[in-house]
């Protein structure tokens, strides 16, 4: 039943550009990119119990790295993509070594401080990042000679990456390593008594989350063909975290639902009100106070209650 509905949903996603307008195709691309970003954050928040408020570091760093490699170093888009992902993972390794000295609120504060350092760097180090003007004139890749310049082609490209990301992350969390990760979330001390290297498990997860964060950053910079320091801001990190929590942290589908909600809200609300940040703040309050478990677990609970009471 679950497989069938999943397959139908995927088929709908595949044929979606055939009957939707450009606006909706682009909206869907944005949602998929945001969903990969939120899913990677969810590995830390939902499965590792490590709430990061600096996940935009990975997205922004990879995007800046790709822009810098292609415009300043003259690399091809594909080579630059590999180099950016490797660079981001190295950075994630370093950040992880610092941030994972702490857990809980300390981890949150350190990740926030680290990402603000990158944000400040993007603003001030004008020689490399072009400061507040951002870097523009970036190109999309053309895998196997297929141009991705049309909205629909880019959507399909993003969809392929999204499906691979979803699939690999599902394998990751259901693997023995994923169980160990959940163990470190729930009972870190017992896991360490059982002989698991708690720190190492968290560090590897941090780097893996950094990898998918970098992938979403590349998709983002290809989509917008432009990168600005605001992609590294606390607002960007907070939007990702809100997507995870609104959709349901620790579920595979939650971040997709949360990202869809947030991107749609952002696009429609900004047509009527100028004040996106204020609205985002109120959404935060609403989710935390009214729907703390998130939409997907909430629906699951309602659904399973209808089917016969067991939860």
């Amino acid at each position: 039943m679950k497989q069938i509905s999943g397959a139908i949903f995927l088929a709908l996603l595949c044929v979606f550009p055939l009957f939707a307008g450009d606006f909706y195709i682009n909206l869907a691309s944005q949602i998929l990119i945001a969903a990969i970003f939120a899913m990677s954050l969810n590995l830390l928040v939902g499965y590792g119990g490590l709430t990061s408020l600096g996940h935009a570091s990975f997205l922004g760093f990879a995007a800046y790295a790709s822009a810098w490699f292609t415009t300043q170093m003259g690399l091809g888009v594909g080579t630059a993509a590999v180099a950016s992902i490797v660079a981001t993972m190295v950075m994630a390794g370093l950040f992880g070594m610092i941030a994972l000295r702490a857990t809980g609120l300390g981890f949150l504060m350190i990740t926030l401080a680290l990402s603000q350092v990158l944000w400040g760097l993007a603003y001030r180090w004008v020689a490399v990042t072009n400061g507040d003007n951002g870097m523009s004139g970036l190109a999309r890749p053309a895998p196997f000679g297929i141009s991705l310049d049309s909205g629909a082609n880019y959507y399909w490209f993003t969809l392929v990456v999204f499906v691979v990301a979803y699939w690999l992350m599902a394998i990751f969390v259901s693997s023995a390593f994923g169980s160990a990760l959940r163990g470190t979330r729930d009972q870190a001390r017992r896991m360490s008594a059982l002989g698991h290297e708690v720190w190492m498990i968290r560090w590897i997860t941090f780097i893996y989350a950094g990898f998918w964060g970098a992938v979403s950053g590349l998709l983002y910079v290809y989509y917008t063909k432009y990168i600005h320091p605001s992609s590294l801001s606390i607002t960007a990190s907070a939007e990702g975290l809100l997507s995870v929590i609104a959709g349901g942290s620790g579920t595979l589908g939650g971040p997709l639902v949360g990202s869809a909600l947030l991107i749609i809200l952002k696009n429609y609300a900004s047509a009527y009100v100028e004040r996106w940040n204020m609205l985002l703040g109120f959404v935060f309050l609403f989710i935390v106070l009214v729907l703390p478990e998130g939409i997907v677990p909430g629906l699951k609970r309602i659904f399973s209650r209808r089917q016969g009471g067991q939860s």
Binding site: L53, M278, L280, F282, V283, F284, L289
Partner: peptide
């Protein structure tokens, strides 16, 4: 939210967005 430290952080973050945007407005 006294039993939910993560929720408290998120609420203070949400409030900071609201205050900052209100100042801008």
């Amino acid at each position: 939210l006294s039993t939910n430290p993560l929720g408290q952080v998120l609420v203070t973050l949400g409030m900071s967005f609201i205050i900052a945007d209100a100042c801008l407005m």
